[in-house]
Computed example of a mutant assay.
Amino acid sequence: MSATAVVTGAGGGIGLATAIRLASDGVHVLATDIKPEVPGLPSGVDYVQFDLLGGDPAGLLAALDGKPLDYLVNAAGLALFDRDGSVLDTVEAVWDATLGVNLHALRHLTVAAIPLLRSGQGKSIVNVASTAGIRGMDSPLDAYQVSKAAVVSLTRSLALQLGPEGIRANTVCPGAILTPMIEPLYIENPARRTDMEQRTPIRRLGMPEDIANAIAFLLSEQASFITATDLVVDGGWTAQIK
């Protein structure tokens, strides 16, 4: 019987690339996003529209029909670039929305999924954080940064608590990735993209598939001795002192 995964944020970007990658590896994927539908999903991916903020995680997981869960990938994320900024002047609603999606919804779904993971074989969780959660940014995006730092911390705690049961938990921390969330900023300001490419030692932006490949590795048996780790996938960006 093939492994089963739940992937959030599968309406585009990293979540979609991860769902496609896992399906290509023979994993049965329950993909979810707030979008009504996602055209062109491959065989092996079942899509369920779900609001992570307002929905009941148990209702989403019921779509597994009682099957054990092997992998959980929390890839859904929110960055309100036009409204987020310094904690000194960012409005409360931005903090509520950003932490609501990036941290609290992740927490709720993960807690609901743990009993299913306990009965699975893969027993692996990967949470998508960000290099912003482990390093500062040139311009503050404090609600986003804090939410992703919290994801890193929570994932480590889960890894320590669940490790004796054989359940692993890791984060992937992407750098500058060309996702639907960030692409409009580069379209509006092409110089911003050029600058980011030049600041990255590999001299390109990352693609969602780069992160999906890292996630697939951390989920796999090849990473069976890796837990409580933050895998930075940023083309060398954060290794620099500037």
Rank of each mutant, 00 (worst) to 15 (best):
M1C: 10
A3K: 08
T8C: 08
G11Y: 01
G15E: 00
L16F: 11
L16T: 02
A17F: 03
G26S: 09
V27Q: 06
H28K: 10
H28D: 15
H28P: 00
V29T: 07
I34N: 03
I34L: 13
I34Y: 06
K35E: 11
E37S: 15
E37K: 13
V38M: 12
L41S: 10
L41V: 07
P42M: 11
Q49T: 09
L53D: 01
P57A: 02
L60A: 06
L61E: 05
K67A: 15
V73D: 01
N74P: 04
A75G: 12
A76C: 13
G77V: 05
L78I: 08
A79G: 10
A79R: 03
F81I: 11
R83T: 13
D84N: 13
T90Y: 06
T98S: 13
G100R: 01
G100L: 13
G100F: 09
V101Q: 01
L106H: 03
L106W: 00
I114W: 03
G120Q: 01
K123Q: 14
V126P: 03
S130V: 02
S130A: 10
T131Y: 00
R135G: 00
R135I: 02
G136C: 10
M137N: 15
P140C: 08
L141S: 07
D142Q: 10
D142I: 04
V146E: 01
V151P: 00
S157L: 14
L160Q: 08
P164T: 06
E165L: 14
R168A: 04
R168C: 03
N170F: 05
G175A: 10
G175D: 04
G175S: 09
I177A: 03
I177L: 08
L178M: 14
P180K: 11
P180Y: 09
M181G: 00
E183N: 12
E183K: 15
E183R: 15
P184M: 07
L185D: 00
N189S: 13
A191V: 11
R192D: 01
T194H: 13
D195R: 15
M196D: 13
Q198C: 01
Q198L: 14
R199S: 11
P201L: 07
I202S: 08
I202M: 15
I202K: 09
L205Q: 09
L205C: 12
G206I: 02
G206W: 01
M207S: 10
M207Y: 10
E209P: 01
E209S: 09
N213K: 12
N213L: 08
A214Y: 00
F217R: 05
F217C: 07
L219S: 02
E221W: 06
A223N: 07
A228G: 12
D230M: 07
D234A: 07
G235C: 12
W237F: 15
I241R: 12
K242R: 14
